[in-house]
Design a protein around this nucleic acid. Sequence first.
RNA 1: GCGGUCGUGGCGAAGUGGUUAACGCACCGGAUUGUGGCUCCGGCAUACGUGGGUUCGAUCCCCACCGGUCGCCCCA
Length: 428
Amino acid sequence: MNMKAPRGTVDILPGEAKKWQFVENKIKHVCDRFHFEEIRTPMFEHTELFQRGVGDSTDIVQKEMYTFEDRGGRSLTLRPEGTASVTRAFVENKLYGDPSQPVKLYYFGQMFRYERPQKGRMRQLNQFGVEVLGSADPAVDAEVIDLAMSCYQEMGLKSLKLVINSLGDKESRTNHREALVEHFKPHKEELCADCQLRLTQNPLRILDCKKDRDHPAMKTAPSVLEYLNEESRDYFDQVKNYLDSMGISYEIDPNLVRGLDYYNHTAFEIMSEAKGFGAITTLAGGGRYNGLVEELGGPATPGIGFGMGLERFLMALEAENVDFSIDEKLDCYLVAVGEKAEKEAVRLVHELRKNGVQTDKDYQDRKMKAQFKAADRYKAKYVLILGEDELENQVITVKEMETGKQEELPLNRLIDTLKEKLPGGREE
RNA sequence: GCGGUCGUGGCGAAGUGGUUAACGCACCGGAUUGUGGCUCCGGCAUACGUGGGUUCGAUCCCCACCGGUCGCCCCA
């Protein structure tokens, strides 16, 4: 039997999980301040949702989906990203009818993509994401970008680069698409195999190709920005103005087209520029998708959102040596000596916990000295010693580890005393 | 999917075609009859990724596979 976790998956062990909790809580606070609310959608969906939502011509749909058939013969797919699911939930639950518009949502969750794993790329990955549905105000684009940047900045990341672009509205996109096909058609044979296919399926993505980057036709290719109609250009200008007014700096990259079909108008990516970060630098990516809700059977509703890779977030924190040491001390460690004391200790630990005192004890039948070592390892603030003597006199010895001072207390006064010594308690 | 590189106890890390595979850390016990550190002593463990092949004999040589890692494509 293969006892290893499947390829491209990892266990997040307690030490690491603490960091995750910290980052996740930070992000939740940011969302709260931006007045976004959480949504939780299923981890798998009908395969068709992603085919239509994400787009048949995308790499995700063509080669990265975990698709399977259930016992009822339905084709299901582990979600490769969050937007399609959230949009589906928006339509299915008729959130477009909710008086609170736009609907501002965030989610955390595992995503799944069948790819060759490498640093910052897992087959099961964790994403945080945001979707705003129901507003076509360019201020929302800025708000969403602001939110993403805030998450990073408040964790202390500095080496960030925000790249934006506009793909324009439907009309702009169509015109640009035609121009691209015209432009590249004569060079079809010189392009890489992928791009030859893209020429008919999704010509926009030729601009993004790394292989053909140096092809002469690439430099003279019609830029998306040149093909924006007046309305689209105006929209993009407004987004930029809002970002300027917020003091958020960005770079415009006309070749930023994003891999997913549903985007229009604003597209953006946030990258890490930290040294030693690795080959993959994209931390988050997103954009506007004004046609998606309709595509999935809802009323015409504008939308915008992003996905943020949490593995990469943690990597960036590491790369920038952000110190968020989580110093967790244990309130109490109970050291019991002798069989009778051991029995009483179990009851006492229960009692302490009931009263809100975080407590642990030894379960390895260790000697007293070793129990103290354990208490030290757990950074216990107090060690409670219960031995034959104490038991006989109905007292307990309380030792403060930092100072080394200790005192004897009547057993019935223990809890009140500890509550005094440990202000605040551990309430959620 | 393609290419490079790696795979020895819980962790780190030597090593060899041939009797018991070093060492360090960690852990447990003792010196110290009920007190954290240091020191000394002792103990500890289903360790050579898996499966084949070459060989009298393979952890070591060959092949395949699996996995990690780095890069390509693409993306979070």
